[in-house]
Amino acid sequence: MSLLKTAAAAALVLGASAATAQSVPTSGATVIVPAYGQVTAPNDQAVATFAIEEQDKDKSAAASRVNQKMKQGLEILKKEDPQAQLKTQGYYTYPVYPEEPPRPMTSPQKPRVPTAWRVGQYVQLTTTSLGGLPKTVSSAQKILTLNGIHFGLSPAATRKLEDQRIAATYKNLNERIASIANAMGRPLGDAQLDTIDFEGSGNYARGEVAAAAPMMARSFAKDAAQEVAEPSFEPGETTLDMRVVGKVKFK
């Protein structure tokens, strides 16, 4: 067989193979289609944690100062942001012991005697008044210490964003089904969406970011008359995503 005939025969074989591959029947086929949606919105809520701590040889004296100054701090927060939600938490009292050099194991162990007591308390402020937040924090810092702040979405904004997230995910699912039908050489009308499984047969949604546990405040009470410059904050934005799996049957 000549080289030309051999090449022609090979071309016929390849052509037949391609035709066979393209003619794989898809009637009654079931296709699993994953899709994704993502939406972003500016944060509209802040959760700030304030703290107060006192240390004294007299435990009662330390506790009394903490109670008094926390009360003053709460009054400031309520005055500066009447709509904010406040929650006191994390009241603690523990002894402070002197540092001692290590003793030999054979030496008798004497009971440790505390030289002072450390008392503290936290309060959490949740607000959507982001414009007035710097002034609120500055005023509170005359008495309290800002222990941490976290920006996120309010429940109302989250519900609104949830509608957009579902719509974006469902749109992506339809776009993928159309692309798959086109790749199979089938009209979109032959595809029937049999099942829609949001979260894709499992919990694919990202959990809310857990607020970090407040660290122990080591700053002591400030002079109530001392002015504190207003801090600067950038609330940022939050992105929510979703996964959906669709089960599609072709006629």
Rank of each mutant, 00 (worst) to 15 (best):
P82G: 04
K251Y: 10
Q38V: 13
N172P: 02
Q89R: 14
V209E: 12
V228R: 01
T169M: 06
G200Y: 04
T40F: 03
E75H: 09
P42W: 00
L153M: 11
N182I: 05
P214Y: 05
M1W: 06
I149P: 00
T127P: 04
S179G: 10
F250H: 04
G15M: 09
I32R: 08
A178K: 10
T169Y: 03
M242W: 11
K57E: 11
V209F: 09
A84R: 06
N203I: 13
Y97I: 09
L146T: 04
V39G: 00
T106C: 05
Y36K: 09
V13G: 03
G200M: 05
Q83C: 00
L86A: 02
Y92M: 01
V113D: 02
T49L: 02
K57Y: 03
T127V: 08
V245K: 12
V113C: 00
L74V: 14
A210F: 08
N203M: 13
Q72W: 12
T158P: 00
P102R: 08
P98A: 13
A116R: 04
Q22W: 13
V119N: 11
T238I: 07
D197V: 14
E53D: 03
F250R: 00
D81E: 13
I76K: 01
E227V: 15
A217L: 07
L74G: 05
P108I: 11
A213Y: 07
V119T: 11
S179H: 06
G189E: 14
Q124E: 15
I52D: 03
F151R: 05
A217T: 15
A29V: 12
L130N: 05
V96Q: 13
G73M: 07
Q109F: 10
L74Y: 04
P214L: 04
A213K: 15
A18M: 12
T49K: 07
P82L: 09
A29K: 09
A41E: 15
V248K: 03
A10E: 10
A35D: 03
S138Y: 08
Y92V: 10
F250V: 12
V13N: 00
V209H: 10
I32Q: 09
K59I: 06
W117E: 03
S138V: 11
G148E: 08
A211V: 13
W117T: 06
T239C: 06
V47G: 00
D44S: 02
T239D: 01
L173Y: 01
A181I: 01
E80N: 05
K249C: 01
S23H: 09
L74K: 10
S64H: 06
L77P: 02
T195M: 12
G132C: 05
G189H: 04
T158D: 04
T239E: 06
T26R: 01
G90K: 07
A62V: 10
V244L: 06
M242P: 00
D190I: 08
T20V: 12
T106K: 06
V39F: 02
A167Q: 11
P34E: 07
P34S: 09
L146W: 08
T127M: 09
G246F: 04
A29P: 01
A51I: 06
A191M: 07
F233N: 08
T88A: 12
L12G: 07
G132Y: 06
A35G: 12
I149D: 04
I180C: 01
G152P: 02
A217N: 15
V66W: 05
A51N: 02
K57R: 14
A11T: 13
A18F: 13
M215V: 15
L188D: 12
T106I: 08
L161F: 05
Y36E: 06
G90F: 09
L4M: 11
K142M: 10
I76Y: 02
